[in-house]
Design a protein around this nucleic acid. Structure first.
Lengths: 112, 112
DNA sequence: CACTATACCTCGGCATACGAGGTATGGAAA
DNA sequence: TTTCCATACCTCGTATGCCGAGGTATAGTG
């Protein structure tokens, strides 16, 4: 009936997570909050997106993790590997390309 | 082993197709070419993406089509319905929001 | 004692991007 | 003539990966 909202973010979780972690080591929950704040609520990574993403990224060698006990709570801190940094560069370039492409199309002359 | 390039375009095909068609009626092949030119090669919609997308969009009432014979070739022209225009507005707003969000995250201070 | 915030996780569903492959016509080149 | 390219449509299978819903557990606050 009513069409479902399309995701409009593909690859974006990976891109922004890499970007955050490139600056400093962080743990999952922190990443989620940080992203919401930094993007001024434009980007919200649900836990169902974030955690699986972190796991596959680690499995691909883009991240490394280490658990840390803080106040009886377990946090898993992630950091970017060199391979992850290369990936970040590629994804960033790709994002810029595509987003400029979209903007050009959107900005194309309309006859309103 | 080597990670596969992520799509980095979700919802984008729908968005840009709607945008093009909002300006004028076009047929599939034309849309593909047009998109490539307008985006300066940043966006290339393969036929395996384009045609299925057009079909589902029509099924959802966002587009209407009519076939036309030109030089013994069949072209299927698409136009945007009012519903499609509403959708375009929503998607455009959403795109702007998200892309600005990403840019803010990417532009966040790094310590290089 | 209950509730919220913190902190992790998995599962199933679904949309959809994409390559590969298929049909057919018209025109230009070889 | 035959071959090839551009035009013009299509479908199928696969893989990805987003997402909501739900689950566990601790610490601190009302």
């Amino acid at each position: 009936m009513s069409e479902r909202d399309p995701t409009l973010m593909s690859g974006i979780p990976e891109l922004v997570v890499l970007r955050l972690l490139a600056q400093q080591e962080m743990y999952g929950y922190e990443i989620a909050r940080s992203l919401k704040v930094l993007s001024q609520d434009a980007l919200t990574l649900g836990e169902g997106v974030l955690y699986p993403a972190l796991h596959t990224m680690e499995a691909r060698g883009l991240l490394r993790s280490r658990p840390k006990q803080v106040d009886g709570r377990t946090r898993i801190y992630y950091q970017v590997t060199p391979r992850g940094r290369k990936r970040l560069e590629r994804l960033t370039a790709s994002w810029q390309r595509v987003s400029e492409g979209v903007d050009r199309v959107l900005g194309a002359p309309s006859h309103e």
